[in-house]
Design a binder for these strands. Structure first.
Lengths: 234, 234
DNA sequence: AAAAATTTTGACCAATCGGTCAGGATATAG
DNA sequence: CTATATCCTGACCGATTGGTCAAAATTTTT
């Protein structure tokens, strides 16, 4: 009698997105967990952890509340599972930063990728932002473990570019802080952006223009020029 | 019998910080309201609106819960009063952006000012960030009213600088979005910054270094050079 | 078809929530 | 000193919270 999903505290590894080797759980379980996680993302993004109620998540998922507890045990475990999935997406954009690549193209691809993420998954971004703002108690280990490690690794790449004179001298770590903040603000602070721009919603064209402006500002700030070939994010 | 403070929904005007003309309320009221607001800022920053309990705020202020309701009526009114005070600080930094000033110095002063705000009032920044992330229902009017107006006004100043060829062509509104995000991230996402930098706390020297890096990146991004005279924030 | 495992669900629980209120305590004004 | 306004606070309220559980329904395995 396996009470909770074996994937609840699963590894923070990139899952193979094509035919999964093992669905891990029956079809019913898989489908319901997905529905619950999707509803949870929306409710946690709207109301934060404490503001979100299991009842609200249940209604959004179209399932009775007791069903959520059957699959995830507690509210905290559901929240942690959701956070784990979001963190996996978080680090993917770093793949663009490699020593062999042209600095301008690599950084442009990174920015473009993070902006697309803000446009397509704003709810996930908000859940993450809310978690960090309120102390990041659930992901402390991730921040000072995996994230710190990968930042150090990619910072070394940028330091290499600087040493080779291929870009202006910048502190790569603070550059990352700036890139994260700048791109994610279009998801997390979307309401403020809309209010100032007097838009009732942000269109794809709005995001394209914002991405263009960020690219110019940041690349010029790094002593680089916007590459003519608009880099594809993925 | 004046039940609630007359200042509860007070004007969003800069209060004269020197000898206040009218304390508005007895000494006891003034002192207790200040204690409650200070405690509320900390608790709301830590837990968000729904996560914060009146009981927790009361304990932090060293007062019985019923006392908070005596002064502020409801949790929402207390929250709105706090938000109002924070918003007043928010717009002050815009004062640096004036047509007659040197673009590099003006923008540098703006950045320096907002970074000092992140260092000295991180709790206020978190309360504001949390409010915006979760829909900004309490400050919708402010965002699409006063804020939009002042941004338009200051954007015109920057457009003027661009037209005069005194800086690179940028969309001023998105420049502001970037400056807000970049500076506030050191308050709102402080936990993440600390984790990546492997610091148990951010020192004044950490903030000075961060400010320096942001100045270089942003000013160069605007086609400007960091002014030798480090501009004073106020 | 029988058996075993999994899934579903309403009813229920203790704890906490924001808010109320009466009446005593204290401070201020005349 | 008296009177009036302000301040204080323990006790209490209905509503909502996360979580439990047993028993029925369903699916999967044998």
């Amino acid at each position: 009698m396996m009470k909770f999903s074996a994937r609840s505290a699963g590894p923070a590894l990139k899952p193979s997105l094509d035919t999964p080797a093992r669905p891990a759980g029956g079809r019913t379980r898989q489908a319901n967990e997905a529905r619950i996680l999707e509803a949870a993302e929306a409710v946690f993004a709207e109301a934060g952890f404490t503001g979100a109620s299991m009842q609200a998540i249940a209604e959004r998922a179209g399932l009775p509340k007791a069903n959520l507890h059957y699959y995830f045990g507690t509210k905290e475990l559901l929240y942690r599972t959701l956070l784990g999935r979001i963190l996996d997406m978080w680090v993917d954009a770093f793949d663009h930063i490699t020593p062999d690549r042209d600095p301008a193209e690599a950084i442009a691809a990174y920015i473009t990728d993070k902006m697309r993420w803000s446009r397509t998954r704003p709810l996930a971004s908000k859940v993450f932002a809310n978690e960090v703002i309120h102390g990041a108690q659930q992901i402390e280990g991730y921040l000072s473990g995996k994230l710190r490690q990968i930042v150090a690794e990619k910072a070394a790449v940028i330091d290499g570019w600087v040493a080779e004179g291929r870009m202006a001298p910048v502190d790569p770590v603070h550059l990352f802080f700036t890139l994260w903040a700048t791109t994610q603000t279009y998801a997390d602070f979307e309401v403020q952006v809309r209010a100032v721009l007097a838009r009732d919603r942000l269109t794809e064209s709005d995001f394209d223009h914002a991405t263009d402006q960020i690219l110019r500002l940041m690349l010029r700030g790094c002593g680089l020029e916007v590459p003519h070939t608009v880099p594809d994010g993925r």
